[in-house]
Design a protein around this nucleic acid. Structure first.
Lengths: 343, 343
DNA sequence: CTTGATTCCGAAAGCGCTTTCGGAATAGCG
DNA sequence: CGCTATTCCGAAAGCGCTTTCGGAATCAAG
C-alpha cells in the first residue's frame, strides 16, 4: 500500500504540492476546474493530510486536553465518561483530537500543565472540579493556554466556566425538606478545598437560615467523596444528640453511604430519616431506597463545554463564556415527611 | 516569554542544533562534558521539545488511541474511566499521549479507524467489547496498526487481547446456584453479536449441562446492556411457566434491573429468586439487596493493557500478548438457598 | 495592438526537530 | 614524529505540509 502524500497527489495530477494543498484547503486562487480535479483525485486515493505535518506547519495543535481529576473513585466516575463523550463529539466536528491527561498529585499537576503548554501539543484545556484557589487555573492563565473549567473556583470572574448552581440547589433542597416538616436537617459536605463543596455548604446554611432555623454545627459533617466516607459521616451524625430527621449530602455517592448508615441503625431511610443527594446519578434509581437527588443536567454538558472552549480558541473572550445551569429535584424514595409529622 | 526551541538553546550554548538534539537524546557521540552542559541549559530554560516537530521528524506518533465504545450507557461506564486511568498511567511513563476517539455508528467506526491509520497520529489502538466478527479488528489488521483488544472476538488467535474468562465464570456461577439447591436457573444475556455475550451464554449452558440439568429456552432471554432492558427481560422470564428460582445476568447493569423486576412482583430477591450479575461494579454494594456478582479484576487492567500494547509497538509479537484473567464470585445478598429448600 | 488588471499556478521558504555523514581535532601506536 | 583510529561536533538533508511571493498567461480596456 503506497502511502499517499501531497507529493504523491501532486505527481498524479501534474501540479505543484502547494497548489494541491491550496486547492484542498479552499484557497480562492485556485480555479474551480482544477480544484474539483484535485478533490476527486484526493478522494480516489483516500488522501488524509498528515496531521503532524499540518500541525507543525500551521502552528495550531488541533487538539484539546482533558485533565482527568486525580483520585476519582469508581462511584462518581460516570461523569467522566459522559463529559468525554460530549467533548469528543464537539471536537469531532472539526476533526480535532481529544487528549486525556492525568496527574496523580497536585505538584505533578502543575508539572503536567507546564509540559502541556510548552510542548504545544494542545490548543486548549478543560479541567474539572476546581479547588477554591486552584493553581491549575492560575498556571493555565499564566501560560496563556485557552481553557474552560467545569465548575468554578472562588474568583471566577475572568475565565470561562460551565457550572451548575449548587448553592441554590441546596437552598431548594432545604426548603423541600422543611416543607415536609423537617427541622433537624443535617449536612454531609465534601472537603471545602473543593469550591463546589463550599458552595453547597453555603446553600445549605442559607436555606436553613431563610427558613428561620438555626445552623447547628453538630449537624454538619465533612467527608471525602466516597460512599464509605459518607457512611461514616452519617453514623457520626446519627450518634450525635441533635439527631437529624433529614440529611443532605453534597454528592450522591456520599448519600448512598448515608443510606447504608441509616439502615444499619435499624432506621428506615425516607421514613425515619430522609436523605437527599446531589448529582442525579442514574444508579440512584436502584439504591435502597431509591435516592432522591438534586439532578444536574449532565446530558449535553460535555458538548457544550467543548463548543465553548472552541469558541475561545477561535479568539472569543473567555468571560463571554460563563454558563450557570440549575439542578432540579428528582424525587425518588429517600425523602418523606418527618416521621410523626402526621400525629 | 521567549519561546525556547532547539535553535534558542543552540545559540545560548554556541553549539549546532543537531548537537544539542543528540546530546539531549543520549547519543553516544557527544562528550559527557558537553552533554551535561546542554542538559543543564535545557533545564534552566525549561526546554521541552516540540512534540509535533519531533513526531514529524521521527515518524513515530508517540500516542495511542482508545476507541470509545459507542452507545455506552451511564450505568456501565465506570469501566471506561478505569481503563483510561490505567492506560494513561502506562503511557505516561514514556510521555506518550492518550487520545480518546469515538464513533457513533459502526460504519463511522470503520471510517474512524481508516482516518486514524492514515493520518498517522497514533502508533497503536485499543478497542473494547469486540463483536463476534469485528470489522474494527480486521481493519486494524489490514492497516497494520498495532492494537490490542479488551475482550476477544471469535477468532482471537492472531492478535493481542486481554480478557476475563467469563465462560468459566458463568459455569462457576451455575455451580454455585446448584449448590444452593436451585434447579430452575434463568439467564439474561446480551445481544450475541457481542462475543462476550456468546461466551457467557455458553458458560451458562455448559454449567447447566454439567450439573445434569436441562437447558430450557424459556429460561433464556436476551436484553440490551441497560438496567431497563434487564428489568423487562426479567419480568418476561418471571411470567413464563418455567418460573426460575434464580437468574444469572450477563452484566451487573442488567442484574440490577432484574432485582427491580423481582421486587415489583412482590418477591424478594435473594430469597424467593436469587440473582447473580457479572462485572463486580462497585455500586452493587448499594442495590436492594446488594448484588452478588462475578467480579472481574478491573483494578489494573488498564495499565496492563497499556503495557502490552507498548510492547507490541516496540516490535513484540502480538500473539505473545494474550492474557486471560478469571473472575471470582463476590457474594453479597442477592443469592441464597432456594426458598423452601430447608423445608 | 498596447497596456494594465486579473486569474491561476509554480517555486521556495519555512515549521522545529532528528539523523546521517563527513571532517577536524585529538588520541593511540609503532 | 608520522600514521591510523577515535572522539566529538557541524552541516545539511529531510519529515509532509502550509503559505507567501512572484510571474506567466489570460483577459478587459483604451
Amino acid at each position: 500500500m503506497q502511502k499517499v502524500s501531497l507529493k504523491f497527489l501532486s505527481k498524479e495530477l501534474g501540479l505543484a504540492e502547494g497548489t494541491v494543498s491550496r486547492a484542498l484547503n479552499g484557497y480562492s486562487d485556485i480555479s474551480e476546474a482544477t480544484r474539483s480535479r484535485v478533490i476527486a483525485c484526493a478522494e480516489k486515493h483516500n488522501y488524509k493530510a498528515n496531521q503532524t505535518a499540518r500541525r507543525l506547519a500551521t502552528g495550531v495543535a488541533e487538539a484539546v486536553a482533558y485533565l482527568m481529576p486525580a483520585n476519582t473513585n469508581a462511584l462518581s466516575e460516570p461523569f467522566v465518561s459522559q463529559l468525554l463523550e460530549g467533548l469528543g463529539q464537539s471536537l469531532a466536528r472539526r476533526n480535532w483530537d481529544l487528549l486525556v491527561v492525568q496527574a496523580s498529585s497536585s505538584e505533578e499537576e502543575a508539572e503536567t500543565i507546564a509540559k502541556l503548554s510548552r510542548s504545544g501539543k494542545v490548543s486548549g484545556v478543560v479541567i474539572s472540579r476546581p479547588y477554591k484557589q486552584d493553581s491549575r487555573i492560575e498556571l493555565l492563565r499564566k501560560y496563556k493556554v485557552p481553557f474552560i473549567v467545569h465548575g468554578r473556583s472562588v474568583s471566577h470572574a475572568d475565565y470561562a466556566w460551565y457550572d451548575v448552581d449548587s448553592e441554590s440547589a441546596f437552598m431548594d433542597a432545604v426548603d423541600h425538606l422543611v416543607m415536609l416538616g423537617h427541622r433537624q436537617i443535617g449536612f454531609i459536605g465534601a472537603p471545602t478545598y473543593y469550591h463546589f463543596a463550599q458552595m453547597r455548604l453555603d446553600g445549605y446554611r442559607a436555606g436553613i437560615l431563610s427558613n428561620g432555623l438555626k445552623v447547628n454545627d453538630s449537624l454538619i459533617e465533612v467527608a471525602e467523596l466516597s460512599d464509605d466516607a459518607g457512611e461514616r459521616a452519617a453514623v457520626n451524625m446519627l450518634k450525635s444528640p441533635a439527631s437529624p430527621t433529614a440529611i443532605l449530602c453534597a454528592t450522591d455517592t456520599q448519600a448512598i453511604g448515608a443510606l447504608a448508615a441509616i439502615r444499619a441503625q435499624g432506621l428506615e431511610p425516607g421514613k425515619d430519616v430522609s436523605v437527599i443527594g446531589y448529582d442525579g446519578l442514574a444508579f440512584g434509581k436502584h439504591t435502597n431506597p431509591p435516592l432522591t437527588t438534586m439532578a444536574q443536567p449532565l446530558a449535553h454538558s460535555g458538548r457544550q463545554i467543548g463548543d465553548m472552549l472552541l469558541a475561545i480558541i477561535d479568539g472569543g473572550n473567555p468571560t463571554d463564556y460563563q454558563e450557570l445551569r440549575s439542578a432540579k429535584l428528582v424525587r425518588r424514595m429517600s425523602d418523606g415527611p418527618i416521621s410523626g409529622h402526621t400525629e
